[in-house]
Design a binder for these strands. Sequence first.
DNA 1: GTTCCGATGTACT
DNA 2: GTACATCGGAACG
Length: 186
Amino acid sequence: MTLGRSVFDGSAEVVARALIGAEMTVDGVGGRIVETEAYDLGDPASHSFRGPTKRNAVMFGPVGRAYVYRIYGLHWCLNVVCDAGARGSAVLIRALEPTVGIETMVERRGLAGVRSLCSGPGKLAQALNITVDLNGVDLTAAPFAFRSGNAADIIVGPRIGITKGVATPWRFGLRGSPYLSRPFPK
DNA sequence: GTTCCGATGTACT
DNA sequence: GTACATCGGAACG
């Protein structure tokens, strides 16, 4: 069934766990969320840590919006804004198991295989055609759609690509999924 | 399998 | 000027 706004109304860690196994689509293209990361205000790895800026303003706005930013000058990353009170919390969507619109995603990515279509934040943004145009957009309405799914077993580990806050294990994944951006450390 | 590296926009020191 | 929540390709083993 369709997920309502309440799924985003919790701490970053709680929402990051809750989204594992759910299905996310943009204009009917997407898949099952298999990997997320949590970021919040008290976290030196978070864009919100130093307070509001032009880039991160959406993180300080209403719950259930998309926060999209450019990374390394060429890729886009999608976050969902969460936490009651909207205090700079967000969940980075890192990987999907492609389920719908696979042909469209193959075209956008220029790839043959399904395995690496959405196995990373920049990859899934390209596959789902996510750009800054969607920054600040309500996730509970078109073109977004979130549907509930089940995650049998969630694995936890350190977040990827950060240099601060490395001790906070806020990366979550669907255990055993072949569609993760990288394996979790043992 | 591994490591190295270039591409390149934006925020911040 | 430097850092950055990345990716894909080249070189190597």
